[in-house]
């Protein structure tokens, strides 16, 4: 009851959130089959462990570096990822996309495991952004036919942000007494997984850019 009273005393924030949430489903339900684009977009970054590992590593590294890298990385990554996505949409080739994605998981995992701190946080954003280009290109070339482009784009940008958020949330274990070691261990695990992905990508041969709008990656 007390909590309710407190929340009623601070109505604007709670009311604003509730009202926004109440309007969002209306918007998402729009355009008939277009909602399928949103679902596809939301699902796509979760469709491969290499994507997931790299995205979570971005969040972990941001949390490890602290502000301003904590917000710089999640701001820089989707922008450069979208640039890569645009290249993919236009059918412009980007060599070694799969290798780049796998290498991103390996390198970002190493950054977290070794607690690498660039001299300026912007360098971390540059490194993360560079890999974002490969992730975005993969997303851009793999739109399932007949989906709504806007909703697909929005979906995969939001899903990527959610994965960063998960990484940041996990990275906050650094505040605990042995959290820093846990965080480094998580980085090592991601680096190990990245190494496996890289081995697999190199074994299957260098993958030049996939033509636009092919089937989704498995």
């Amino acid at each position: 009851m007390h909590a309710l009273a407190c929340s009623l005393r601070r109505p604007s924030w709670g009311f604003a959130l509730a009202a926004w949430l109440s309007t969002a489903p209306l918007a998402l339900a729009h355009a008939g089959g277009g909602a399928g684009g949103l679902v596809s977009g939301l699902q796509h970054p979760w469709s491969g462990w290499d994507h997931i590992a790299a995205m979570v590593a971005v969040g972990l590294w941001g949390a490890q570096l602290g502000a301003p890298a904590l917000w710089m990385l999640p701001v820089a990554f989707p922008l450069i990822m979208a640039l890569g996505g645009m290249l993919g949409l236009l059918g412009l080739p980007l060599p070694g996309v799969e290798v780049g994605i796998a290498f991103s998981a390996l390198l970002l995992g190493i950054m977290v495991a070794a607690q690498v701190r660039p001299r300026h946080p912007a360098w971390a954003a540059v490194i993360v952004g560079f890999f974002g280009l490969f992730h975005g290109h993969a997303h851009g070339t793999e739109l399932p036919a007949g989906e709504n482009g806007l909703l697909y784009s929005l979906g995969f940008v939001v899903a990527t942000g959610v994965l960063h958020g998960i990484g940041i949330g996990l990275g906050e274990v650094r505040r605990w007494s042995h959290g820093s070691r846990l965080l480094r261990a998580a980085g090592a695990l991601i680096a190990l997984a990245g190494g496996t992905f890289l081995f697999g990508a190199l074994r299957s041969g260098p993958d030049d850019a996939v033509p636009a709008a092919t089937a989704p990656r498995s």
């Binding site: 990822m81 979208a82 996505g85 290249l87 949409l89 236009l90 059918g91 806007l150 784009s153 929005l154």
Partner: peptide, 21 residues
């Protein structure tokens, strides 16, 4: 707010890609 801004910009960039495609 800044992260939301970056998501919107990213969506805009992709929309340009769709439009040109």
């Amino acid at each position: 707010a800044r992260i939301l801004g970056s998501w919107i910009a990213a969506t805009g960039l992709l929309m340009l890609g769709w439009a040109f495609r």
